[in-house]
Amino acid sequence: MNPLIELTGVQKVFGAGPGALHAFGPVDMKIEKGEFVSLLGPSGCGKSTLMLMIAGLLEPSGGRIEIDGRIVAGPQTDIGIMFQDNTLVPWRTVRGNIELQLELRGLSPAAHRASVDELLASVHLEDFQRRYPHELSGGMQQRAAFCQALVHQPATMLLDEPLGKLDAMTREAIRTDLQALWIQRHPTVVFVTHSIEEAIQLSTHVAIITPRPGRVERIISVDLPYPRDFEVKSSPQFIGYVRQAQEIFRGYGVL
């Protein structure tokens, strides 16, 4: 079977001439359908840049990206993207913001009432669905943005630090929810994070990205049973994977 997402020599250089900034690549990488792949790397290594290129929202300076055998030449509309900066609009409530994704796609919010309710409940925002984004804490906004990105039930999800602004406890809870969702529906997930533990807990594969210009030199395949709960996280194998990733980053001089 062909990989779902295939990167061949993908790189990105911002600007031209002496001021040019080599942000990312070149990188070759394959992501199979249904995999949960984390992009783990230091700040500024080009993770967000790669996500935007996969989504067709930023053109690579070199190389080629294919999704399902088709070259990505423009915005991909059948995926779910959670951007690093949230895309909640101030003139809509939490629920209205989630419905914005549906409305922009020409889907009827009324027909999706139940799935919006379910999604809101899964991130514990039911009581805040009539509130405006400015009335929410940073973490609550991020949870609302998470719902907004996924309400159309995409089979492929690109999540750029979706849990970045959450407190440790909520973060743990949402991780569990995200994992449950993945176990249940097996979407293909590309997940950006700074947390080694988080990457190893959630992912089938962890792509370790070098400092800028980011390259993928190592991919750790995490062979642990799902669901990966507290028990798995305290197992020697889990700790072994965390060590392995830490060693690699120490080698890059970022740890």
């Binding site: 929202l57 509309t77 951007f83 796609r105």
Partner: peptide, 9 residues
């Protein structure tokens, strides 16, 4: 604007 574009609207 990226969000809007990504919905295909």
């Amino acid at each position: 604007s990226r969000f809007s574009v990504s919905t295909g609207a």
